[in-house]
């Protein structure tokens, strides 16, 4: 599945490892929150970047204390209608100050990308055949925003008053 990171197609060196799969050596891995909690020490002992995948219903609080050991948090969208991940990304960035990759995986619509970027997602698993132009176009649909988020974009309310 292609990966878009920071607005460009990027190589994906991360391997998603199932809960019962053997851990590969020296490869960046993404594990479930459950596996992270069960095998925390062994995972930290590895000599490769670590990521955790949060399912809908697994709030970032679950891994908040360990975020400085993680380079990636993947947030799964089981269905595009399930918007919990928007809050998870906001919390990861704004509350916990996570500065690694926050990746949206699962069912995500084109029309959600720009909102997701505003919430702090910087990487997206996208469907085969996705064109980078479509991504850029979707992100450029709105010139201004009303709400303050962690992306630091000036809001309309700021711009009106000399920002």
């Amino acid at each position: 599945m292609p990966l878009i990171k920071n607005g460009k197609f990027a190589d994906d060196n991360w391997v998603l490892v199932g809960d019962d799969d053997e851990l590969p050596t020296d490869t960046p891995v993404i594990v479930s929150a459950a596996r992270w909690q069960a095998e925390r020490d062994a995972l930290i002992g590895r000599n490769a970047p670590l990521g955790v995948k949060l399912e809908a219903g697994e709030a970032p609080e679950l891994i908040a204390d360990d975020l400085d050991r993680l380079q990636l948090v993947a947030v799964n969208f089981p269905a595009f209608k399930d918007g919990r991940g928007f809050s998870y990304a906001s919390l990861l960035r704004d509350r916990y100050g996570f500065d690694g990759e926050v990746r949206a995986v699962g069912e995500v619509l084109r029309d959600q990308w720009s909102l997701m970027v505003r919430c702090g997602f910087d990487a997206f698993d996208v469907a085969d055949g996705t064109k980078i132009d479509a991504f850029q176009e979707a992100l450029g649909e709105f010139s201004h925003v009303y709400q303050a988020t962690g992306d630091g974009k000036k809001t309309v309310w700021q711009l009106r008053h000399g920002g």
């Binding site: 595009f80 209608k81 399930d82 918007g83 928007f86 809050s87 906001s90 959600q112 720009s114 909102l115 997701m116 505003r118 919430c119 709105f142 925003v145 009303y146 709400q147 988020t149 309309v156 309310w157």
Partner: peptide, 14 residues
């Protein structure tokens, strides 16, 4: 109204 228009976090609520 303005705050809730295209709110990035609260557009796919339960």
């Amino acid at each position: 109204r303005q705050w809730s228009t295209f709110h990035p976090e609260f557009t796919f609520l339960p």
